[in-house]
Design a protein around this nucleic acid. Structure first.
Length: 923
RNA sequence: GGGCCCGUAGCUUAGCCAGGUUGAGCGCACGGCUGAUAACCGUGAGGUCACGCGUUCAAAUCGCGUCGGGCCCA
């Protein structure tokens, strides 16, 4: 468990874990119980438990194993008082519980029948559920019957009966046997259920509710006690079944008897069939504290809110007294001593108190030593310890103060208690959330925690529980081994809200892995350059470059500070999934897809240029801030980055990122208008890419102009024109006025129907003249009257209705829509633009070859480029120096028919032209 | 039987508390980029927001009910 937590990066005090077996911890439980006693909240009472008669102990529900067992199945007649020869018929599979019968239960919505039934010439009157009469009488081999009357459940409850074995069980003579209504009665067997509150859970509940006697004439050894009467005393109950049946038969109370295979519970240790018996137990009177507890629940902050106001409050409303005792050997012993002579009771709170009271000092407060400690009773008697131990839930219930070594140490307790925050799964409503509250209420009268995050479970990708039988279990270690702890953490935290069940999917993990890999790449991106440029603490100091910051630098700094604000706010509400999303978005959208793209050319500047250094300092600042806010989510990556970037440059920095203070947003760096402008620029840039795609112009080829036509006023590029130029690879950005469009092409077409009647034989010439005319001139003339077109020196007047003029987006101006309007890209080529395009094509190929040769960034090369087309060569020649410097060529030849040389020689096809390139590393 | 939560694209989900044209990732198809490169980017197709009724000018969102899944209780 510890190793599991550690590989996940959980940070706890591993050297000093709390152990419930330490005396110090045990004393916290003792102290608490003593407080409960002082507050009059400790009580002794009976309670039905699962009991193993061989181990002689109560066992928990989860320790019961079920399998089929063949038992008796008997129908018994209970004689109704005041009605001659009349019986209520019940059914049971445990004849041995009949001596403990106290009542009969009926379903409040069933109808019951009184029937007269004949068997072998004798008649008797039987009462059972109307729907079950036929089957019961058949089982009892009755030959005939008639309906006597029907009874409602209310009428049933007016009946009383005498115990069928009243003569053998003397105690039964004092018990009034009545009929009660209970929802758990089903329409099976007779519809009347035998109730023995000492031998069944539902029976016990019903018995408590109706103040029945909890009669249990069976001891912990599974044998009848004297209360069962002389006949049965000492008999082991499972062996008593046949005895009871024989006696019922003899009394004429057995209607039928058979055998039945059914599921029955067994002790997980010794496989003995369990029995239910009422035992004497210790209770905390939680029900007395209900209103106060609800009050506390409303004071606690719950995440989500309904975990407290709805779910936990509902549980508290239904909470019964808490049975804290268990008949076990291992566990925290109950510190309760009683006097067998006078019944006097004392609860011991500490080991010191025990020593003072008994004169004995114990090294270990557990059993068996503690069982040998006796106290002197004021009456002179010898007080002995109640042999029970605490319910293990009580161990966890006192955790909040036991782990602070209270009550033996007071200082830590006053500093730290109550806890600010606890978290557990939604099954712990009844568990840890409740046990801690209960124990704290009885001892301190308030909740031991201020806030609770109730989290969900991890299910498989289809929302099913992970289980061995389905084979869908995924171990955290497996994910950590394949992807790493940070990826598992980030995935789990981001997949959905913390309080919802997680549908684990490997795809999701893989996706997270890709995302964090981009983050890692973003971090690594700047490193080689920083190393080359001998980056140090001085260069990391952003304040030295304040005046050199470009708008995009100020933008990413604004964004990272906005991110800190957002994450801090969401952290306060445990909206962890939203935080992961914000961080992912920042890394992908802002840092990787945008800022790093913008900053790349600056990192290639050779000397210590302040423009480059400002970019480094900015990236440095962003990465350090990120490592700090990501530390709780991805502790390992964060630490690695921190150690390198912060600790590596400054020995005096905190030892670990996890020891840094939570970063505060620098408000003066946040510029929402700049952020707004940048998102506009990004959108426009994407629209431009879209338009380029439509116009068939690759991004590598520069364009002369980008035209933005906003639909509304108020489009502010915020000084980011250069960013837009760079990202769209364009020479000029034009923003039109709202509603204005760039100049459209006009298409002019003759309307023959109107021209024909006017010009008759000359119509054909007019049509030709229109086709030859400048549409813009024609349109302008038509705007203020008729227009004139001419052909072969002859002029014709035409009216507006003789032509149709349509606006067409020009071929060289593809457009794309974005949220604020349209973006047009002018893709008209000029020799200068073409030269640049070819230059970039050649540069890209040479870079590709450098990579193939595995050259380092700073390596110089010798390169020869042979271009087979003279016009293209001429274009490329214009950019010869530019190409040489971009690819770091110390020696660069560009020409036609050059002899190729170099370590690597390759033929390339650039826009259909063969370009042959040879390169090698310069000495 | 009771309380609470969940149901949105093929899959995983955001949005729901504070009503105003459902947003993303994966997968799929097409295209682009190339010194972060066993990466990366763009475009496109794909949704009766489980179902029904109600409140409202307007409902994925609020209310009631039904169905399906989960946790807890009886």
């Amino acid at each position: 468990m510890t190793a599991q937590f550690q590989i996940l990066g959980a940070w706890l005090d591993w050297e000093d874990p709390y152990m419930t077996l330490k005396n110090e911890y045990l004393e916290a439980a003792w102290w608490t119980l003593k407080k409960a006693h002082e507050n009059n909240l400790l009580e002794r009472g009976l309670r039905v438990v699962n009991w193993c008669p061989r181990c002689q102990t109560a066992i928990a529900d989860s320790e019961v194993e079920y399998w089929d067992e063949t038992d008796y199945s008997i129908y018994v007649k209970f004689p109704v008082i005041g009605e001659e020869n009349t019986y209520i018929v019940i059914w049971t599979t445990t004849p041995w519980t009949i001596p403990a019968n106290v009542a009969v239960a009926v379903n409040p919505s069933f109808q019951y029948s009184r029937v007269r039934a004949w068997k072998d010439g004798k008649a008797e009157i039987l009462i059972m559920a109307s729907d079950l009469v036929e089957s019961v009488l058949k089982t009892g081999r009755y030959q005939d019957y008639e309906l006597f009357s029907t009874l409602t459940a209310e009428q049933m409850q007016e009946l009383t009966y005498s115990h069928p074995l009243g003569d053998m069980v003397p105690r039964q003579k004092d018990i009034l046997h009545k009929v009660y209504a209970a929802d758990f009665v089903t329409a099976e067997n007779t519809g009347c259920v035998h109730i023995a509150p000492g031998h069944g859970l539902e029976d016990y509940e019903l018995g408590m509710k109706n103040h029945m006697e909890i009669f249990c004439p069976v001891g912990g050894d599974g044998r009848y006690t004297a209360e069962a009467g002389e006949k049965y005393q000492g008999l082991y109950v499972k062996e008593a079944d046949s005895e009871v049946i024989t006696d019922l038969e003899a009394q004429g109370r057995l209607l039928a008897s058979g055998r039945l295979a059914h599921r029955y519970g067994h002790c997980w240790r010794c496989k003995t069939p369990i029995i239910f018996i009422a035992t004497s137990q210790w209770f905390l009177r939680i029900s007395d504290l209900r209103d106060k507890m609800l009050d506390e629940v409303s004071r606690i902050t719950w995440y989500p809110e309904w975990a407290g106001s709805a779910r936990f409050a509902d549980w508290i409303n239904n909470a019964r007294d808490w049975c804290i005792s268990r008949q076990r050997y291992w566990g925290i012993p109950l510190p309760i001593w009683t006097c067998p002579a006078c019944g006097h009771l004392e609860v011991i709170g500490t080991s010191a108190e025990l020593e003072e009271r008994s004169g004995q000092k114990l090294v270990d407060l557990h059993r068996p030593d503690v069982d040998q400690v006796f106290l002197e009773c004021p009456c002179g008697g010898k007080m002995t310890r109640s042999p029970d131990v605490f319910d293990v839930w009580f161990d966890s219930a006192v955790a909040s103060w036991a782990t602070l070594r209270f009550p033996s140490h007071k200082e830590e307790f006053s500093d730290w208690w109550p806890a600010d925050f606890i978290t557990e799964g939604h099954d712990q409503t009844r568990g840890w959330f409740y046990s801690q509250l209960g124990a704290s209420m009885v001892s301190f009268g308030r909740a031991p925690y201020k806030s609770v995050l109730m989290h969900g479970f991890t299910l498989d990708d289809q929302g099913r529980k992970m289980s061995k039988s389905i084979g869908n279990i995924v171990q955290p270690e497996e994910v950590v081994q394949k992807f790493g702890a940070d990826i598992l953490r980030f995935y789990v935290l981001g997949a959905n809200a913390p309080w919802e069940d997680l549908h684990f999917s490997w795809d999701g993990v893989e996706n997270t892995s890709r995302m964090l890999n981009i983050f890692w790449n973003a971090y690594r991106f700047a490193l080689p350059y920083m190393v080359l440029d001998k980056f140090d603490a001085g260069k990391a100091d952003l304040s030295r470059y304040e005046s050199n910051l470009r708008p995009e630098d100020r933008w990413i700094l604004s964004r990272v500070n906005s991110l800190i604000e957002d994450v801090t706010a969401e952290m306060d509400g445990y909206q962890l999934h939203r935080i992961v999303r914000s961080i992912s978005d920042f890394i992908l959208e802002d840092l990787s897809r945008w800022y790093i793209q913008l900053v790349r050319p600056r990192t290639w500047i050779e000397q210590d240029d302040p423009d480059k250094l400002a970019a480094y300092a900015t990236i440095y600042e962003v990465l350090v801030k990120l490592s700090q806010i990501m530390a709780p989510f991805t502790p390992f990556i964060s630490e690695s980055i921190y150690q390198n970037l912060v600790k590596g440059l400054d020995e005096g920095a905190p030892q670990s990122v996890h020891m840094c203070n939570w970063p505060q947003a620098q408000k003066e760096r946040i510029d929402k208008r700049l952020e707004e402008s940048m998102s506009l620029v990004r959108e426009a840039s994407m629209a431009a890419s879209n338009a380029r795609q439509k116009g068939g112009r690759k991004l590598r080829w520069p364009v002369s102009e980008i035209v933005i036509a906003p639909a509304k006023e108020g489009l502010d590029l915020g000084g980011l024109e250069n960013v837009l130029k760079g990202q769209t690879n364009s020479k000029k950005i034009t923003v039109l006025a709202a509603g204005e469009k760039p100049k459209m092409d006009l298409e002019i077409a003759p309307v023959h129907k109107k021209i024909g009647p006017v010009y008759k034989g000359e119509a054909k010439l007019v049509v030709e003249a229109i086709a030859a005319a400048d549409p813009f001139v024609v349109k302008k003339q038509l705007a203020c009257g008729d227009a004139t077109v001419s052909i072969a020196g002859k002029e014709y007047k035409i009216t507006a209705e003789m032509v149709s003029i349509k606006e067409l987006p020009p071929q060289n101006l593809p457009a794309a829509e974005f949220s604020r309007g349209f973006v047009y890209v002018d893709i008209t080529l000029t020799p200068e633009l073409e030269a640049e395009g070819y230059a970039r094509e050649i540069i890209r190929r040479i870079q590709d070859m450098r990579k193939e040769l595995d050259l380092r960034v700073e390596d110089q090369i010798r390169a020869v480029v042979d271009i087979e087309s003279k016009p293209i060569l001429d274009l490329a020649m214009r950019k010869k120096d530019h190409i040489a410097s971009e690819v770091r060529a110390a020696d660069f030849q560009l020409g036609l028919g050059l002899p190729l040389q170099g370590k690597l020689v390759k033929d390339w096809d650039i826009e259909g032209i063969c370009v042959r390139i040879g390169i090698e590393r310069a000495a």
